[in-house]
Write a protein that binds this DNA or RNA. Structure first.
Lengths: 181, 181
DNA sequence: GTCTATATACAGATAGAC
DNA sequence: GTCTATCTGTATATAGAC
């Protein structure tokens, strides 16, 4: 807990970056080792298999979501506005972890798909108290999913055709008006 | 145009099915040939490369979207309701073609990502006439994206946690009320 | 802990028989 | 038009030196 090996984190960062920027197919152990500045043998000392490497990314995501859910419930502008605004990716560590895990899920890793479903449920639990009914909750969750989906389709850095700035403010206002009936 | 070779369509169907059910990594030429009941050589007669095979799926999607956009504009319940309802996948040929193409896009095929962006724009063009402003259009498009995203994450046949039946009707009503301000 | 070298498996693609 | 056999590249993983 205190201080995980630096090389381990470096490898995880590199793997995540390749997943996000170049896709699941490009994220080989070879490419990861090269990007992390270690040899393949060195990488395999920290992660004995590809599966272990993938599990490393998924585990890190879990920790980041803990913090995000807490921040959402405490947000001054309200949970819904915070949630939708943070669904547009800004390339922060949480966004990158989510995107990387989404790539793994699409690549066929069942643990990654499970993790994403579980995270979505935790977000829903955080929104539910401020939604008047399940239909309103569905609406908020689906708009958020839509925002993530567009970011996931676009390359890691290229922004998708999602509303930003004033358009995002207007969308949040529309959603909040809708769920208040 | 008149009647494409049967084997060609069979191969395309098999490739699409593996993409949807087992993911992009599992969709090898070998697996596709086996599933289609032809040899690898036979497959390569119809599709000289993996890229050609992927292009085949993307092309078929384009034709299916032509029909869908026409149906959307003519739908008795209105374009928005038709659009959202059809965003919940029912495993029809269009759904499968979209999902397969989404898998290719996630796998790093730029043509697939371009095709999906273009299709999304065609849908938006069909919705725009019935949306009072761009924010309302954003809302409808994002809810639809969210529905697709959840289906894309779930396996091909396993339904995602998306509203169906009465819940879907309620969601459509909520969206239509919201965009009418 | 990190390296090089190597084993094993499988992907995409070619050649040529039928 | 469909097949078998084979080549080449590359991915994961192992073995063992330093």
């Amino acid at each position: 807990m205190s201080r995980p090996p630096l090389a381990r984190e470096k490898v995880l960062d590199a793997f995540e970056a390749i997943l996000v920027d170049d896709g699941e197919r490009a994220a080989t152990m070879d490419a990861t080792a090269r990007a992390a500045g270690v040899s393949k043998g060195g990488l395999l000392y920290h992660f004995a298999s590809k599966e272990a490497l993938e599990a490393g990314v998924i585990d890190r995501l879990g920790a980041l979501v803990d913090a995000d859910v807490a921040a959402m419930s405490a947000a001054a502008e309200g949970a819904v506005a915070y949630f939708l605004r943070s669904s547009v990716m800004e390339n922060d560590p949480l966004d990158r972890a989510i995107l990387a895990t989404a790539r793994l899920a699409q690549g066929g890793n069942p643990a990654a798909a499970d993790a994403l479903r579980e995270i979505r449920e935790r977000w829903a639990d955080a929104i539910r108290p401020v939604a008047p009914d399940e239909t309103a909750l569905d609406l908020v969750m689906l708009v958020s999913d839509g925002l993530y989906f567009n970011n996931a389709l676009a390359g890691g850095s290229i922004p998708g055709p999602v509303p930003r700035g004033a358009a995002m403010d207007a969308l949040i206002a529309l959603v909040e008006r809708a769920i208040r009936g």
